[in-house]
Simulated scan of single mutants.
Amino acid sequence: MTMTWKVHEVHGRLYPDQGWTPAKVILEDEKHLHDADHPEANGWPIWHFRHTRPSEGSGSGVLPDCPIVDVHTHAWVDSFAPRMRAYFGDNFGATAFNPGTLDGVRERKRELGVTKSVILPVPTNPRQVPQFNDWLQDYTDDPDIVPFMSVVRDMDDPVAEIHRCAKLGFKGMKLHPVNQHFKMSDPKMFPIYEAAIEENMVILFHTGSGIDYPTVGPDWDCSPVEIDRFFNKFPYERTVLAHLGGSVPDFTHPPELHPEWPGYMDTAFQIGHIANDDFLRIVREYGTTRILFGTDSPWEDTADFLTRLAHIGLTDSELRDILYRNANTLLDLGLE
């Protein structure tokens, strides 16, 4: 069905025409985080500041009548999801736009016409790896859900876990250098990359800033320097860089543009956080046939992202590439 996406206001988002400036938002962030007794409050990314409204773009406000694949979403088992929502809300002021459960993902998908959602787990210690992978293995043939698996560097035999998950039908692996405490160029990660490449798995990396850690520096775990080092060793075309390669040093600046990087990038947590002109420049110079639609749900509102994408000024063909064609090719989803 064709849907017209009108300008959509979102709770907790601050706009320039409401009198907000980056400096003012930073002060508010610092106050909130000091109140929460957070040790890294100074210089916190202004992740909830919106640079542009959808109506400022040049698009028609209408998305093509086509599938929509969200390649960057998160969910947890029903019993754990409320704790995650509370943790991010209490410590970082993050709004969850769905319950953070698989049922919540499905409900939002149906409301907005999303065809498939890729679920990205982020275990942070060896104990959590089987908890995530064993839970998600039941959904490898699900019509709505495309689960990815993950490993951590210091677990027992991560290579064997990758081969096990490949046999179970997982199409990809999510790695988060910051939360999982490794640099992309760390030689201890090489066997993990090699196993995923051997299994033809997609490798999706978190890159750049995040709402749950402070402003990043030039030699960050997943900085452009680290991405270069990874691709120099592994020029793997089935790599996805989340967040358009990452906002460095914070969400006030667009990501650095590196069209020479192979593979794909996703749009998670970027649409609206950077100016429309910067977004269009980055996706067109990198190539819209290598850009994947992603939101970072539940920490972003899918409706807001689709609204902005409809108004941002992309052509019908470019929108189809980003919304589903590229993901369909990369993940072999069998979409028409």
Rank of each mutant, 00 (worst) to 15 (best):
185 S>L: 07
3 M>E: 01
231 F>H: 15
19 G>T: 10
40 E>P: 03
87 Y>C: 03
283 V>R: 08
243 H>N: 13
160 A>H: 05
82 P>S: 14
10 V>W: 03
241 L>M: 12
141 D>R: 08
173 M>Y: 05
39 P>S: 01
292 L>C: 02
40 E>S: 14
65 D>E: 13
58 S>V: 15
315 T>F: 07
219 D>M: 14
304 D>M: 01
126 P>C: 01
129 V>E: 00
106 R>K: 11
178 V>M: 08
60 S>E: 11
265 M>N: 02
266 D>N: 06
296 D>V: 10
56 E>A: 09
115 T>Y: 09
49 F>H: 00
285 E>T: 15
147 P>A: 08
76 W>M: 08
295 T>I: 10
259 P>G: 08
324 Y>K: 13
188 K>M: 09
79 S>R: 12
293 F>G: 11
92 F>M: 09
310 A>N: 09
78 D>Q: 04
131 Q>K: 06
103 D>F: 00
217 G>Q: 13
38 H>V: 00
285 E>F: 12
249 P>I: 13
233 K>D: 06
326 N>S: 12
143 P>K: 05
11 H>D: 15
254 P>S: 04
245 G>F: 03
71 V>K: 14
174 K>V: 05
232 N>Q: 15
328 N>P: 10
267 T>P: 10
226 E>V: 12
251 F>S: 14
160 A>P: 01
96 A>I: 04
290 R>A: 05
9 E>W: 02
280 L>Q: 12
95 T>A: 05
111 E>N: 04
326 N>I: 06
188 K>L: 15
